[in-house]
Nucleic acid binder design. Structure first.
Length: 904
RNA sequence: GCCCGGGUGGCGGAAUCGGUAGACGCAGCGGACUUAAAAUCCGCAGAACGCAAGUUCAUGCGGGUUCGAGUCCCGCCCCGGGUACCA
């Protein structure tokens, strides 16, 4: 075997062995526990990027580790092949999206294999193939028949120049990215899946996912957004009544106006003979539809001239059109309480609408009582002012109670809304009630009058699955003038997307082709037209995990799924925390309700990895435009302490600006090509660095110097093993005859085995596992004992290290296993090294000694030392004496195995 | 705007349940080997003050709880992710 480490040769040999032996192809085996390890499937964007490398290395480490624990591990790979980038690339490269996509898949599959990932390639699929999406179409027509898929109008970004719908990403500062035209909102009919029918279950299910990150569960809870409130009817003078939803019925008596969406029927009616209002409503249409844009835009409004009637007081309230009220959410109308809601307050201030205080803080209520007044129903029309009336108003004589009330009144009327729960005032029959009491009383009052009812409201909206794009799965619907929207009969599926098309970029080829849509109605047989919209690509990625378990099945999934599902470990980017992971959970429940899977949730354990980031470098040209240089083109300069002082371009030696560390991207040209790294250092080094440089859930800063460090470690390890293998044969380890150094090294080994197993298996803390293995290498390379037992212990250490490194650097371990004298084999089928509890025992331990919580020294004590002895030894330290002398020892805290703290 | 994260030496990070802050690695400095370089090996290294022993300060900022806080609580600042048609 080679004396020096040659990663390219080592990796080729290991990969050939795995491929020849079909090492990672698995089938259902009832005799072994299954472990399904799944990484989010990639979009085939062209070439592997570092984000992929990181994601898939994490999955591979977990997969290989679990197989070494005796599990039957399924780790599949496939392609999320539909999507917008293929259309953009097709325009740019004058090719067809399908051709571009398939070429990318070919290239990226080769790169995956070069990384040595332990995939079962026999299960691979691409979601753009009819034999994949036919199942999705069949599911959709079934959902249509069950009423879980339905059609309604919904608002999109419309580019008036290209006459096309834009994705939110394609709207830059309210304008279309290609035309620069101001985008407008437009309503079009689209298909929806009723995810809201499952809102409660999706919310409750989060409680049954203990191994999901709290951040993800918390984000999903807020996204689903269950809220309890009242739906309240406001009559409108001379018109149809308005319905609003509120979670704050306690503030009902503080309503001073009603706001409705620009598209609300009442607004449109009012605008019919009010040209100014019509202009305003028209102006609300410009701009994109994304929530971030809607929520941050300037709040604008206009009075309709209509008046609503307050359901309790009968007061006349102006009805305003407001751009922040959205027709698509809730009822398209809100009751406005500027005294107790920030947004209503801001709008009222701008438009000169009145503010009414109806909730007071507990401190104010106390002050009112202190001044001898009451807030109970009917006590006073305005208990705050009643309390102030007759009290001293001169600045010098004000009591603190008066000041509390005045301050509150001033704050509400001049500065901000009081949004917390409190006690009702100025609310007639509801005066003196707290939030809970008021909620009940208002509900009872309105229900009795038929003007309102309790309602649970959800922030979650139904899933709009229509896209006006070409490169996606055709929606299997036929439109007939007589029969309406008819699902394509199952025996006519799949509806195939033509792949050999000319693609201009503006309109979908199946929309421009007059022939593709022509068909006949499945119900009446008359000429009819196909739907030319395609599915949201989240549809494909919502069920792919189940398809991997059932390759080749005629149905969407078959019985084999029961062996593998739910997924034991899912790995992917945190950017998918809400949308993908929520649709995916929803679709699993759809599959369950069709009888296709048995479980309620698709994934037991979720790991969200952070982004891969890198330094950026640029130069500005004359007009301020920045030209970005790749880190590979730049040399960084440092001072004598290692601080970065500047950077120069390698090509001309002249300085470039340092632009800060950002997510690797094409736009900042700071992407590091994994292929170049693999060619230079080998896959194992790249894998090792991406696992070592940061914990998996945090962002990872790429550093080629760091990669070199990993290469250095593998070369040192290789040399250590090869040198040891050149030594004469050794006897077996005899624990009873070991000397102190041998015992120490063995203890360090078994501590490492315990830590690495825990870090890989439970904590997913791969960086610390690798650090522990590096420490162990440092220990063993300093261990120069060449005796029989010395060599025996060293062999035990090195063999265990080969196995423990295998999940991260499988090629190197594969080769070194043979160097250590073993037959070539699949290391994942060699059992994980066992911890020898006896080897962990130690007889002395170091305690930290503190005085008043500050470290003053350490003491060596026997493991089983009693508190008094520890205390006496600690007190005897000169450094401790210096701080204790002349003071009284008040208390001594002894934490066994940790610290002694002397409090003086 | 709203929801969710993060902030520790020159840098990436460690400290797993409130108990010795800075493991491991990178960069740096000093040395060995070498004709030289590369590679490799040995050593130093948070900051300030001090000849030294050592002392003080230090985990984004300001408070608090505790014998003891990077870790828990309250209030801020900054950076990142998501925000329903990027995936």
């Amino acid at each position: 075997m080679a004396e020096t480490y040659d990663p390219q040769a080592v990796e080729a040999a290991a990969q050939t062995f795995w491929s020849d032996t079909h090492a990672f192809e698995v089938t259902e085996d009832a005799s072994k526990p299954s472990f399904y390890c799944l990484s989010m499937l990639p979009y085939p964007s062209g070439a592997l990027h570092m984000g992929h490398v990181r994601n898939y290395t994490i999955g591979d480490v977990i997969s290989r580790f679990q197989r070494m624990q005796g599990k039957n591990v399924l780790q599949p790979m496939g392609w999320d092949a539909f999507g917008l980038p293929a259309e953009n690339a097709a325009i740019k490269n004058k090719t067809a999206p399908a051709k571009w996509t398939y070429a990318n898949i070919e290239h990226m599959r080769g790169q995956f294999k070069r990384m040595g990932f332990a995939y079962d390639w026999s299960r691979e699929f691409a979601t753009c193939k009819p034999d994949y999406y036919v199942h999705e179409q069949r599911m959709f027509v079934r959902l249509m028949k069950q009423g879980l898929a339905y059609r309604k109008n919904s608002v999109v970004n419309w580019d008036p120049v290209d006459q096309t719908v834009l994705a939110n990403e394609q709207v830059i500062d309210g304008r279309g990215w290609r035309t620069g035209a101001v985008v407008v909102k437009r309503e079009i009919p689209q298909w929806f899946l009723k995810i809201t029918d499952y809102a409660q279950e999706l919310l409750d299910g989060l409680d049954d996912l203990p191994d999901w990150p709290e951040a993800v569960k918390s984000m999903q809870r807020h996204w689903i957004g269950r809220s309890e409130g009242l739906e309240i009817r406001f009559d409108v003078e001379g018109d149809e009544p308005l319905t609003v939803f509120t979670t704050r019925p306690d503030t009902l008596m503080g309503v001073t106006y009603v706001a409705i969406a620009a598209e609300h029927p009442l607004a449109l009616k009012a605008a019919a003979n009010n040209p100014e209002l019509a202009d305003f409503i028209e102006s609300c249409k410009s701009g994109g539809v994304s929530e971030a844009e809607l929520e941050t835009q300037e709040k604008r409004g206009m009075a309709t001239g209509l008046h609503a009637i307050h359901p309790v007081s009968g007061e006349k309230l102006p009805v305003w059109v407001a751009n922040f009220v959205l027709m698509g959410y809730g009822t398209g109308a809100v009751m406005s309480v500027p005294g107790h809601d920030e947004r209503d307050r801001e709008f009222a201030s701008i438009n000169g609408l009145p503010v009414k205080m109806v909730v007071a803080s507990p401190a104010v209520i106390d002050a009112i009582h202190e001044l001898g007044h009451d807030v109970a129903a009917g006590a006073a029309s305005d208990p705050m002012r009643a309390a102030l009336h007759g009290s001293a108003t001169d600045a010098y004589d004000k009591s603190s109670a008066v000041r509390v009330i005045e301050e509150f009144i001033n704050r509400i009327s001049d500065i901000e809304a009081y949004t917390e729960h409190g006690i009702l005032v100025n609310s007639g029959p509801f005066d003196g009630m707290d939030f809970q009491q008021a909620f009940k009383a208002v509900a009872k009052h309105l229900e009795a009058e038929g003007k309102g009812c309790r309602k649970v409201n959800w922030r979650l909206r139904d899933w709009g699955v229509s896209r006006q794009r070409y490169w996606g799965c055709p929606i299997p619907v036929i439109y007939c003038d007589d029969c309406g929207a008819v699902p394509v009969p199952e025996d006519q599926l799949p509806v195939r997307l033509p792949e050999d098309v000319a693609f201009s970029g503006v309109k979908s080829p199946i929309k421009t082709d007059p022939e593709w849509r022509k068909t006949t109605c499945p119900e009446c047989g008359k000429p009819a037209e196909r739907e030319t919209d395609t599915f949201d690509t989240f549809m494909e990625s919502s069920w792919y995990y189940a398809r991997y378990t059932s390759p080749g099945a005629d149905t969407q999934v078959d019985k084999r799924a029961d062996y593998w599902l739910p997924v034991d470990q899912y790995i992917g980017g945190i950017e998918h925390a809400i949308l993908h992971l929520l649709y995916f959970r929803f679709y699993h429940k759809l599959l369950r309700d069709q009888g296709l899977v048995q479980s309620d949730e698709p994934v037991r354990n979720l790991l969200c990895q952070g982004m891969v980031i890198a330094e950026t470098f640029y130069r500005e040209d004359g007009d301020g435009a920045r030209h970005w240089f790749n880190p590979a083109e730049v040399d960084v300069q440092r001072d004598e302490r290692g601080r970065i002082t500047g950077a120069v371009l390698k090509a001309d030696g002249k300085p470039v600006e340092i632009g800060g560390i950002e997510k690797m991207s094409k736009s900042k040209n700071n992407g590091v090509d994994p292929q170049a790294m693999i060619d230079k250092y080998g896959a194992d080094t790249v894998r090792l660095f991406s696992m070592f440089a940061a914990p998996p859930d945090q962002s990872l800063e790429w550093s080629e110097a760091g990669v070199e460090g990993m290469s250095r470690f593998l070369r040192r390890f290789w040399r250590e093993v090869v040198t040891h293998a050149g030594q004469p044969d050794h006897p077996v380890v005899d624990p009873a005859s070991l000397d102190a150094n041998q015992k120490t090294l063995r203890r360090q080994l078994h501590e490492t085995i315990r830590k690495v197993g825990d870090d890989y298996g439970r904590r997913h803390s791969f960086n610390t596992a690798i650090a522990a293995l590096m420490e162990l290498l440092n220990h063993v390379s300093k261990f120069d004992d060449m005796s029989d037992q010395g060599r025996a212990v060293r062999h035990e250490v090195l063999e265990a290290m080969v196995l423990m490194l295998d999940p991260v650097t499988p090629h190197t371990s594969h080769a070194l296993w043979k160097v250590l004298g073993n037959a070539e084999t699949l290391l994942e089928d060699v059992p994980w090294p066992a911890v020898d509890e006896k080897a962990l025992e130690r007889d002395a331990v170091t305690l930290a000694v503190q005085v008043n919580g500050k470290l003053r020294g350490t003491i060596e004590v026997p493991v089983a030392v009693d508190k008094d002895t520890a205390q006496t030894q600690a007190m005897a330290l000169p450094a401790v004496q210096a701080f204790v002398e002349g003071k009284t020892v008040r208390k001594v805290i002894v934490v066994p195995g940790k610290i002694v703290n002397i409090v003086v």
